[in-house]
């Protein structure tokens, strides 16, 4: 573990990313302390510029506090990003592991199914799903997971394909071990590193998709989110720039930080890079 941290630490920007993510998480966790009111509440004069009328980052056309929206929106973004990614990784591992391990017709069928999902442009597919399921936080999570699991499935399948013919797996067969146990205890732990890396990057994508959906008005109407704020402010971009800009910057910084961390995890977990040092 210390070894891992030493390798991770070598990548300065990854450490920076980790600090930023930590701050975003802190912000989300203390949202109710910082702004102990509903971010949808009309808090004062509409379209106040930043620093006036008691608004740190200004207010929007209905007088909602932009700063409060960002702080509460962080909760939404992180939660959706994390949950959607976990669901997607789970489905991806399930499909990939079965396809890679059993091969043959099972692989054929599972991979053709995966391809069906991969051929539909993911954002349009997500819009379609949310539109069918009615916008709510659940449908957003489902939509994001459904469009992002195929990548994981492909990755896991590849890993399983190469690992299942290793001698240590064959040795387990000769000991009479069951397939489930071989998959879970022998093979899966050996492909965790790439899964962690792809998973961390998927959180960033999930946050982007969620923002996109909320921007188009397909987010949960009762939950504050960054995409919703941008969508609400876009018509006044020229007269009240702050309404769109600050949530946009929040998305940019968070996604960038997550990508940096993913990059750092890749460096730290990738054994080939490890040997080079």
């Amino acid at each position: 573990m210390r070894d891992f941290w030493n390798r991770y630490k070598r990548n300065r920007s990854a450490v920076f990313g980790l600090v930023v993510i930590f701050l975003v998480i802190l912000m989300a966790a203390t949202a109710d302390l910082l702004y102990a009111f509903d971010p949808f509440r009309l808090a004062g004069k509409p379209l106040s510029s930043p620093g006036t009328n008691g608004f740190l980052l200004g207010s929007d056309s209905l007088g909602r506090d932009v700063a409060a929206g960002i702080v509460h929106g962080a909760k939404t973004s992180l939660l959706i990003g994390l949950v959607a990614t976990l669901v997607a990784v789970f489905i991806g591992i399930l499909f990939g592991a079965l396809a890679g391990y059993y091969g043959g017709q099972i692989d054929n069928i599972l991979m053709r199914v995966t391809e069906v999902f991969q051929t539909i442009p993911s954002f349009i597919f997500a819009i379609l799903l949310v539109a069918i399921l009615k916008p709510s936080i659940y449908s957003v999570v489902i939509a994001i997971s459904v469009v992002s699991w195929p990548g994981v499935a492909r990755l896991v399948r590849g890993e399983f394909l190469s690992l299942k013919n290793r001698e240590f797996v064959q040795a387990c067969h000769t000991l009479g071990m069951s397939d489930l146990r071989i998959m879970l205890r022998e093979i899966l732990p050996n492909c965790l590193s790439p899964i962690i890396v792809i998973g961390s990057l998927m959180i960033a994508t999930a946050i982007l998709i969620e923002s996109g959906l909320s921007f188009l008005g397909l987010g949960d109407p009762n939950i504050m989110s960054w995409g919703f704020q941008i969508g609400a402010g876009r018509t006044m971009l020229r007269s009240a720039w702050w309404v769109c800009t600050f949530p946009g910057v929040a998305i940019l910084i968070t996604v960038l930080a997550i990508n940096l961390v993913g990059e750092g995890l890749n460096d730290a977990l990738n054994p080939r890079l490890r040997e080079r040092n």
Binding site: R166, E167, F168, Q170, A171, T174, N190
Partner: peptide, 11 residues
């Protein structure tokens, strides 16, 4: 069975 490659045969 004892396998050939001591590096690949242990998890």
């Amino acid at each position: 069975m004892v396998f050939q490659d001591p590096f690949a045969s242990l998890n």
